[in-house]
């Protein structure tokens, strides 16, 4: 169950890293609204200043670092450890990339991905003679 909640990144593990701490894949929920998609990512402990949201060539990447453990204490029991969060998503043409908004609160990063005008559901009025 713990593994489901927070997994160590698989793909970056094969990539050479220049630091010793692990990279985690944050758990994500995606909710569809009428005019936008909403992405909720759990990144507990992430410092707001360390959060980066990038959109490049159709790929949305979220990256965040978390505070390092206190130097004066020893960890005697651990179910989580300091590390970074990283995850990428391929975004379709349906999303208006210019209007992506991000909000961070209580350890959850919420991204709002508005749909382009053409992708929004439209009701077609039926005319009666």
């Amino acid at each position: 169950m713990k593994d489901l909640q927070k997994q160590t990144a698989k793909t970056p593990a094969t990539v050479e890293r220049t630091h010793a701490w692990p990279t985690f894949v944050p758990a994500v929920d995606i909710v569809e609204h009428k005019d936008a998609f909403e992405l909720h990512a759990d990144i507990p402990g992430a410092d707001p200043g360390s959060i980066n949201v990038n959109f490049e060539q159709g790929v949305l990447t979220i990256h965040a670092g978390r505070a390092v453990a206190a130097a004066d204490a020893d960890t005697i029991y651990a179910e989580f450890e300091p590390g970074e969060y990283e995850r990428s998503f391929t975004v379709s043409d349906q999303i208006d990339a210019g209007k992506i908004a991000a909000h961070y609160r209580n350890g959850v990063l919420v991204l709002t991905l508005p749909k382009v005008e053409a992708a929004k559901p439209k009701k077609i009025a039926v005319t009666v003679n």
Partner: peptide, 19 residues
């Protein structure tokens, strides 16, 4: 998830509670 740290003065229990 819970982590317990111990220093000379205290114990620090942290829990991840996003959302």
């Amino acid at each position: 998830s819970i982590t317990v740290d111990e220093s000379a003065k205290d114990y620090r229990v942290s829990a991840e509670l996003p959302g």
